[in-house]
Design a protein around this nucleic acid. Structure first.
Length: 470
RNA sequence: GGCGACGUAGCAAAGUGGUAAUGCAGCGGUCUGCAAAACCGCCAUUCGCGGGUUCGAUUCCCGCCGUCGCCUCCA
């Protein structure tokens, strides 16, 4: 059975067949680095990391390209706000994001191209579109002529008529049609700009991905990925640009992940992650508190295409889930390598591997794959209790490690009980200590305070009770 | 309003035209000085609501309700 993969373009599950046998060309839209990366960005990166790891597990060689849109309106606006140089800002943030991806155990892409390093190819691309009359110059801008692209709208399921009738905005008079989009934007004073046949300017959004995809992967690729918020207009426009230039189908399989959404645990209402609500969860802040596997487990627990619900409670649940997985890797206590228990374990390991593959073949059903791993964990713990050890036990643990690694889980034993909120624990000790003081058991009470001090936690007794600080 | 997706136990979340994985939480038991961990068992007659197709639907179709994403330049 081959891998089945859901294609957003056809809205169907399709058998996965690559252009070139054994080789996968995969382009994933990365981020526009204009602010700290949050866990929504991490989700997308992990989704495609897992897809890539599984394809490699199945024997494919994967060429994986992830771009940085390091110059665009948002970057420029943010830089102006901060009084900084736009390219310096986006460069720093991009490097920071790469470091965080490493921390999240995301395998490095084959190449991470940036817009600012792809300007010649972008200019060439645009010129090609102009030559073929798919684009026109207007002032210092260049626009894509949507009307000339017969199947425009095929990815997002919109017709040009619909889009035009829905136009509520004032139309730029230089554009032939409101649906046309910018390929090249003339530079305003003070903005980063590159020379071009149409005057100094910078690439529009959309064009860079088409150009980088062709540059690094060729005219046709197997998988193009990104968040489903990119379906329109970004990916629609990429198809228009690429196919108009080459005359060939651009991407075989469009793969889109669902959005991460915050759910307020009290109200059960979905909240937008926004600075004004003060609820942005950055990758950095998550990793301060939890092992990277915890976030990965959250992502793996549901379908990559569905919305992913997140809140602090869910994070804590998944930290316990990781603890559970890790119990499977605790050492054996016995040493029996044969007998019914050892056989049952070997069988459980084989079954886990099979169920894992079946689940992953079915459009990367990571939740199902994970369920297989949990069953293997129970089998391991059972076998350990039954005295199984030695090579038999090690082999089954090896299977667990191997399959977990395909999902990108590190299963680092040091992650156990790490980073949990210490506040309730300290409060508890304070409460116990108050009882001791009440009972005039001062030696014990002082011991609690001294030992906590040794851990870097200071207690301060006052008239209103005990306060603590780190 | 248009296009798309989703709605399954306290929480998270798979899944299938034939009667509901898995994890967390909870409950009972084994083990333990007592706990913890582990192990064994229990925990949705039911899959947003209402119709329809079918011998049979959570799974297919229609409608409704709810949630989310997107709806070009500019913001």
């Amino acid at each position: 059975m081959s891998i089945q993969i859901y294609n957003s373009l056809t809205r169907r599950l399709e058998p996965f067949e690559t252009l070139e046998p054994g080789v996968v060309r995969m382009y994933v839209c990365g981020v526009t680095p204009y602010d700290d990366a949050h866990i929504g960005h991490a989700m997308s990166a992990i989704v495609f990391d897992v897809i890539r790891r599984y394809l490699e597990y199945r024997g494919y060689t994967v060429h994986h390209v992830v771009n940085f849109t390091d110059v665009d309106d948002k970057v420029i606006a943010r830089a102006e706000q901060l009084g900084r140089d736009p390219l310096q800002l986006s460069g720093e943030l991009a490097d920071e994001f790469l470091a965080q991806l490493r921390a999240l155990n995301v395998q490095p892409a084959t190449v991470y191209p940036r817009v600012t390093q792809t300007i010649p190819e972008i200019r060439e691309f645009i010129q090609g579109l102009i030559d073929r009359e798919y684009a026109y110059v207007a002032g210092g801008d260049v626009y894509f002529r949507v009307a000339r692209d017969a199947d425009y709208g095929k990815l997002s399921g919109r017709s040009l008529d619909e889009m035009l009738s829905g136009t509520r905005f004032e139309v730029d008079p230089r554009k032939e049609s409101p649906a046309d989009f910018a390929l090249w934007k003339a530079a305003k004073p003070g903005e980063p700009a590159w020379p071009s046949p149409w005057g100094p300017g910078r690439p529009g959004w959309h064009i860079e991905c088409s150009a980088m995809s062709i540059k690094h992967l060729g005219e046709q690729i197997d998988i193009h990925g990104g968040g489903n918020d990119l379906v329109f207009p970004h990916h629609e426009n990429e198809i228009a640009q690429s196919e108009s230039l080459t005359g060939k189908p651009f991407t075989r399989y469009w793969v889109h992940n669902g959005m991460l959404q915050l759910v307020n645990p009290a109200t059960r209402q979905v909240e937008k992650m926004s600075k004004s609500l003060g609820n942005v969860v950055t990758i950095a802040s998550f990793l301060e508190q939890y092992d990277p596997d915890v976030f990965r487990l959250i992502v793996l627990g549901s379908s990559y295409r569905s919305p992913l619900t997140y809140n602090a409670e869910i994070a804590a649940d998944h930290a316990r889930k990781l603890d559970r997985l890790l119990t499977g890797l605790l050492p054996a206590v016995g040493s029996s390598e044969q007998g019914p228990a050892a056989e049952a374990l070997a069988q459980a390991a084989a079954q886990a591997r099979q169920r894992f593959g079946e689940a992953m073949d079915n459009d990367f059903n990571t939740a199902g794959a994970l369920a297989a791993l949990f069953d293997l964990v129970r089998a391991l713990n059972s076998a350990r209790d039954a005295g199984v050890g030695g090579a038999s036990f090690a082999a089954a643990q090896g299977t667990l490690r191997e399959l977990a690694a395909v999902l990108g889980l590190r299963l680092d034993p040091a992650a156990r009980a790490r980073g949990q909120e210490i506040e309730p624990l300290v409060e508890l000790l304070i409460e116990v200590r108050a009882e001791l003081r009440q009972a005039r058991q001062f030696a014990l009470a002082d011991m609690v305070r001294d030992r906590l001090a040794g851990l870097g936690i200071t207690l301060e007794d006052g008239p209103q009770g005990t306060r603590w600080k780190r």
